[in-house]
Simulated assay, not measured.
Amino acid sequence: MNWLLVIAGAMAGAPLRYLTDRAVQSRHDSVFPWGTFVVNVVGCLILGVITAMAPEKLRLLLGTGLCGGLTTYSTFSYETLRLAQDGARGYAAANVLASVVCGLGAAYAGAALGQALR
């Protein structure tokens, strides 16, 4: 039965990723992948909150399912590689550094928020 929770969360997370990515990216005239950056950082924040305060079934639905469908390491990797290959090495390096630092910071902040709300 747990796998149904994961599937249900992913069914919401994947379209949410696509729609958010398109909405964010359409507002920026830059080669930097703002849409992927935003969904990954927001996903880290949500996962931090959920991990700190939610019971197991909710962690499966929202953590594994929703956040798993929302965030995307493969797209982050591809977009970073594309930036480097296209000669935008500064953007590629900034994407890696900002994604790691902001993602970890968001996960930490989410966990702290989850603990405070508990």
Rank of each mutant, 00 (worst) to 15 (best):
L47H: 00
A93W: 11
Y108R: 06
A111F: 14
G35T: 10
T75G: 13
R17H: 08
I50Q: 01
M53T: 13
R27K: 15
E79F: 08
A52P: 09
R22W: 10
K57W: 13
L70Y: 12
L4C: 10
V6N: 01
F37T: 03
I46S: 05
F32S: 09
L97A: 15
R27F: 07
C44R: 04
H28S: 13
A12F: 14
T72M: 11
E79V: 04
G43V: 07
S26W: 03
G63S: 01
A93L: 15
F37L: 14
R17W: 08
A52W: 01
A98N: 03
T71W: 05
V6M: 10
V24N: 09
G90S: 10
L70H: 08
L104A: 02
L45I: 04
A8I: 07
A8W: 06
R27T: 11
R89C: 13
C102Y: 00
L66K: 00
G114I: 01
S99E: 06
T80R: 00
L61N: 02
G48Q: 07
G48P: 05
G35V: 09
G110D: 03
C67G: 04
L117C: 09
L113H: 02
C44S: 13
F76N: 04
F37E: 06
R22D: 14
Q85N: 14
G68R: 05
A98C: 13
Y108M: 07
Y78G: 14
G87Y: 12
Y108C: 12
V100A: 11
F37N: 06
L81S: 13
T80Y: 02
V39N: 05
R59E: 00
D29I: 05
M11E: 07
L4Y: 08
L113M: 12
G110K: 01
I7M: 14
V101P: 06
K57R: 12
C102F: 11
M53H: 01
T20D: 03
P33S: 10
Y91A: 14
R118E: 09
M11A: 15
P55T: 00
V41Q: 05
P55M: 00
G90F: 11
G68M: 10
E79I: 03
S77F: 07
S26N: 15
M11Q: 04
V101F: 09
S77H: 10
F37A: 02
